[in-house]
Amino acid sequence: MATLQEIVSKQVPLAPGHRMCSGCSIPVIVNTIIAASDKPVIIANATGCLEVASTIYPFTAWKVPWMHLTFENAAAVAAGIETAYKAFKKRGKMKDDVNIIAFGGDGGTYDIGFQALSGALERGHKFLYVVYDNEGYMNTGNQRSGATPFGADTTTVPAGTMSIGKTQWRKNIVEICAAHRIPYAAQATAHNTLDLFNKAKKAFAADGPSFIAALQPCTTNWKYDTALTMAYSKLAVETNFWPLYEVENGKVHINYKPKERKPIEEFLKGQGRFRHLFKPENRHVIEEMQKMIDEEWERLLKLEESQVQI
């Protein structure tokens, strides 16, 4: 097992001087994932916060081979790189092994890039797809995405006297990916560096496609103080809003079970996007949210206990 000292001592793939918001946790996720790779990496990056903020021409923050792609084709290009790489290896033009990683935001994964992702998983290319999930189109100013949680205020589903914000629950992307019968899919978050590192290790070791969804609190559009990024990441896990679990060959394993589940209010409190839920007339939204979270958690516990194939 790696220690934090060992992880931070590895060379970081991103250089300072990138223009992600103050307090953004995307670089933390990217650095931790790539630190887990023992082999050289090739990155395919869908359009999103990470892409626009790390490579503003003529500057680039990347120290590793990196490719800029559109919203929809990060997984398709990663699959192409893998296939080309295999062909080169067969002809003896390349010798070393590499790890191919695709990074996408939740917009480029849950919504726009979904068919390319599904196709690449189904074809069984050996690559890791990482979604840094900030629960909306944050780079363009907080539009609703398939990952936006129930009750959140966004510019396309604004909260007001006639609206509570988004009325649908988010997609369960980890289970959707696991349902492609891929060897490894996991849910992780920014604050738990060791957990994220270990999951990336397992993903690289998997024989086939692997998928990691990492929650990435967004200071700009969740609207909270920049210092609290990791605190909100922690609260998301402790309230079971974002459970840490992995699906290895279809079998669920929960990595962290909070001793005492915190009420969801603790996660919602202080976030501008959920401010309207604390009005007396919106109390029922929080109650409904709590009920959904508890039901999901029960279901997850059952899946783990029964070891039923997802």
Binding site: P16, G17, P58, W62, K63
Partner: peptide, 11 residues
């Protein structure tokens, strides 16, 4: 681009 040119951009 060569790697890590963002080092010139002081945030």
């Amino acid at each position: 681009l060569p790697p890590a040119t963002s080092l010139e951009y002081k945030t």
